[in-house]
Design a protein around this nucleic acid. Structure first.
Length: 125
RNA sequence: UAAGUAGUUCACCUUAUCGCUUCGUAUUUGCGGAGAGGAAAGUCCGGACACCAUAGAGUAUCGUAGUGGGUAAUACCCAUCCGGUGCAAACCGAGGACAAGUGCAACAGAAAGUAUGUACAGUUAGGCUGUAGUGAAACCAGGUAAACUCUACGAGGUGCAAUGCUACGUAUAUUGGAGCUUGAGGGCUACUCGUCCAAUUCCAAGGGGUAAGCAGCUAAAAUAAUGCAGUAAUGCAUUGUUCAGAUAAAUGAUAAGGCUUCUUAGGAAGUACAGAAUCCGGCUUAUGAACUGCUUUUUUU
RNA sequence: UGGCCCAUGGUGUAAUGGUAACACUCCGGUUUUUGGUACCGUCAUUCAAGGUUCGAGUCCUUGUGGGCCAA
């Protein structure tokens, strides 16, 4: 398993994102929150993801970019958790819901917890 | 030494691993190159570029305003005169015209415009002259134009979500109105003119679909050094440099070392303001550190 | 990204360059045995900082916050 995150794995379609917010379900592990939906799309990868930080919580573009980059890095390092276990295709949007800055190590820990939580829930169903 | 004032420079660095965007080359995921700012910001001005008719005329509207120069252009820059602020260095100024016309002037004051009253003084008198008092303004051809206006100069409009092309998809549903060469309507601010286009068409209501890709898209009014012209802004010549191009939107993470700062050796932090979105020139605002010139005051010699 | 607007008591609106007005609300008082009604009073650095002016809510400039339009 290579630790990459290519263009194909990013959620870009405006239509899919619209559907995600209308029909998707959510799960949170403070300060992270994920919205996910099982659906079909053209790419071969098992998930497509996007990252979002609210403009209300971080007014500066510099801070928003910084957090989005950290989140992307966390996901990139730990996406094998999902890729090994998932059978269906999912689209996921991660949002950041705190007003403080976090370090990379802290965020990575939270990300792993959140992904585990997600897997448990989906397997039960 | 303190305070002030004008300006200049920098914006942690190196290596390794993993990853992102993009270009080149190879081809099967390799190899190599490039990858945020002085303000990328605000959008306050000016252009380039594109379309709108060939981009036209007049009026309206808006902007600018000492003088001279620079520039693609400007509300910018340079020089200088005048006025103002400051002890000074220095800084600020929409700084043309009220001797064309119109309007306005609270309170105070005799009077704020059809100007010229009162008291006192000078003079023999008539009258004339001066002073006082109110006020921002009454030194009379009065004050006021960031009041209307006039003068000079400038501005056609819309903006890369411009514009051109490809692909996918739908509904020529329906209703109302206008018109078919004696002209509906359109040609992107308002009116008038002029001119061009114009018929399975145009307008309104209401509804449906799409929202994917390519071009535009980054090498230029670019920048550095030297020489010449010029007080300067700047221009010209020669030589060198190649410097982001994404689109739910690339610049990140980890480790080691150096450097700096903080701290009780351990250790912690890498700082301020802040993230390209068609591209340039300015202005304005936000902001850390270091250095230099000048002014004033105090102390010492 | 580009373009265009707005800001006055707690709320909604006024105001030729010359004392910031009106309605409702809140609070205090008077009237009433008490409450309501009625009457009286209080509540403003006119978004911020500069400029023009004798004098700016008003005119000009810059900023702050909010809103609208354009596939």
């Amino acid at each position: 398993m290579r630790y990459t995150l290519t263009r194909e794995e990013k959620l870009k379609s405006r239509k899919l994102i619209g559907r995600l917010f209308e029909e998707g379900s959510s799960l949170s592990e403070f300060p992270l929150r994920m919205i996910y939906l099982q659906t079909d799309y053209t790419s071969d990868y098992p998930t497509q993801v996007a990252f979002s930080v609210s403009k209300k919580r971080f007014g500066n573009a510099v801070d928003r970019n910084k957090i989005k980059r950290l989140l992307r890095e966390c996901y990139r390092k730990n996406k094998y958790i999902l890729y090994d276990k998932l059978n269906d295709k999912y689209i996921i949007m991660f949002t950041f819901i705190d007003e403080k800055h976090y370090k990379y190590v802290e965020l990575e820990e939270k990300m792993i917890q959140l992904l585990d939580k997600f897997l448990k829930k989906e397997k039960k169903e």
